[in-house]
Design a protein around this nucleic acid. Sequence first.
DNA 1: GTCACCTTAGAAG
DNA 2: CTTCTAAGGTGAC
Length: 167
Amino acid sequence: MKAPSVKLPIFTSDGQFVAHYSEKGLAELDFPANGRAELPLGQNAQQLPSKVRRWHRATVAALKQVLAGRSPKKFPPLDLSGGTTFQRQVWNALRKIARGQTKSYGEIARAIGRPRAVRAVGGACGANPIPVLVPCHRVLAANGKLGGFSGGLDWKRKLLTREGVSL
DNA sequence: GTCACCTTAGAAG
DNA sequence: CTTCTAAGGTGAC
């Protein structure tokens, strides 16, 4: 049962992101497509439910705040029902990392009571459907190095730098 | 079943 | 210091 989703573009100075909304809220956020070739969207803003338009406004504002290295005042409701229990625990822990702060995969693992599931935390970060707003980029390797990032290490570096984190 | 993945502490060389 | 090993959760094949 795949929840019906609405896709809306978000134009930023870093490219065109795409937000996916389910009945519950923001369910996915995509980084700008490489090269920018794809624009699958054709939603008429007029016929969208008002709640979706409201969520989208919050998403756009929040995304731009984070891209600018600041803390969003407001977030749209996040629909993380697509993940497993373990993944949701990880994502929830990620959301507690404030702007400019970083944690290691090991610290997240301990925070959710799974001290040995370090690599699994890495996996959950990679599976994060809402990058940037769920700050998977604030997780570094234990020795202070960047670690990986499926969205592209450039983004990880860029986002952290804008938040004032030095590597 | 097997493999690859955003890891890491510890033991061995 | 460098190299190797073992340990978790999950999705792709």
